[in-house]
Design a protein around this nucleic acid. Structure first.
Lengths: 108, 108
DNA sequence: TTCAATGCATAATAAAATTAGGTATTGTGA
DNA sequence: TCACAATACCTAATTTTATTATGCATTGAA
């Protein structure tokens, strides 16, 4: 595993939660948006994305809904639940705390 | 695994490298120093610490040396190698980049 | 008409964490 | 004195989260 891959461990959930706070999205769209908004930095592979979405739904953070498009291509849209919003707020402040501590350690 | 534990994934190496940049330390001291300097935030368990130190030495980032104390308690001191210093610089900037991107995603 | 892109998914494996144990010495309070 | 906490090293079994590699199906473009 590369250095960059390794340090991204654990950030997948907050990224997804953060994205979905804007609006519901489907899996493929989530991966595209993450890459686009980070200029390619965040690149969540499918083998990680879908299991993570399923796990988060199982945990009650997301709800999903199949939607048919005009072109008959099926998409499963995910949206934050109330619990998902709570967890987003919690995780965001936890990440801030983590980054603050890490910054301090790197600075000294 | 708790939320905090999860997000600390991948940060162990940079923390160790960063600490040892100051001075050589032995394993137990490393864990104590990390906890103390972060007011208890960073708490690297022994089951992670020692295998990590061994792996980093294997990778040529650290060199170690047994030292006997006046009380006959043995300590294995670890010090950064030249390669370890390079890797520290690399990882530090990678972490800065990661945090910058994550901040951006959380802000939007 | 083939091939890239879209869109979902799972399986096998790897890396890094956890908990739980083991060994041994030293310092301390009841 | 003597049990127990702290110091100091280590490994093993397991869990979590990542990777790569698949599979299936539809759509769009060269």
């Amino acid at each position: 595993m590369s250095l960059r891959d390794q340090m991204r461990k654990g950030s997948t959930e907050i990224l997804i939660l953060s994205l979905l706070a804007d609006q519901p999205m489907y899996g493929y769209q989530i991966s595209q948006e993450l890459a686009q908004r980070s200029s390619g930095y965040f690149d969540v592979k499918e083998g990680l994305l879908y299991p993570t979405l399923h796990r988060m739904q199982q945990a009650g953070l997301l709800q999903s809904q199949w939607q048919e498009t005009e072109t008959a291509r099926r998409r499963k849209y995910y949206a934050l639940t109330a619990k998902g919003r709570e967890v987003l707020a919690d995780q965001a402040s936890e990440w801030q705390e983590f980054m603050r501590h890490l910054q301090a350690m790197l600075a000294s």
